[in-house]
């Protein structure tokens, strides 16, 4: 896990797996998750192995999560928004999966 060195002046509230989190405005979803959990944020479609953000710059795609019902979003490239709903992504996400 990661820890924040500063108190944020401005925060937003997001939901991760149904749990409300107050996080600094402007932070990426990946950063917010790394400060919240040290568990996997997705499992892979092939072997079901757990993954978490790895590169933080949009090249590895291991931080894929479901954001506001849309799967396969790069958490490290997405900035938190008030009311955003974030969920872990398990295995393959197909067309028409329930949000």
């Amino acid at each position: 896990m990661f820890k924040r060195l500063h108190e944020a002046a401005e925060t937003v509230t997001v939901e991760f797996e149904g749990e409300r989190l107050r996080v600094p405005a402007g932070e990426t979803v990946a950063a917010a998750l790394l400060a919240t959990t040290d568990a996997a944020t997705r499992t892979t479609p092939v072997g079901g192995s757990g993954r978490a953000p790895y590169c933080m710059m949009g090249v590895c795609f291991d931080c894929l999560v479901e954001i506001d019902g849309v799967p396969n979003r790069q958490a490290c490239m997405t900035v938190v928004r008030d009311g955003m709903r974030i969920r872990r992504q398990h295995g393959v996400r197909g067309l028409g999966d329930p949000a």
Partner: peptide
């Protein structure tokens, strides 16, 4: 190298720069 808890050094630096975060532990 695919396990949660493994990142690139650059990723940790990006977290310092963009979020003022460092690894806990």
């Amino acid at each position: 190298w695919t396990l949660p808890g493994v990142m690139t050094a650059g990723a940790a630096q990006i977290l310092m720069k963009s979020a003022g975060m460092v690894p806990d532990g």
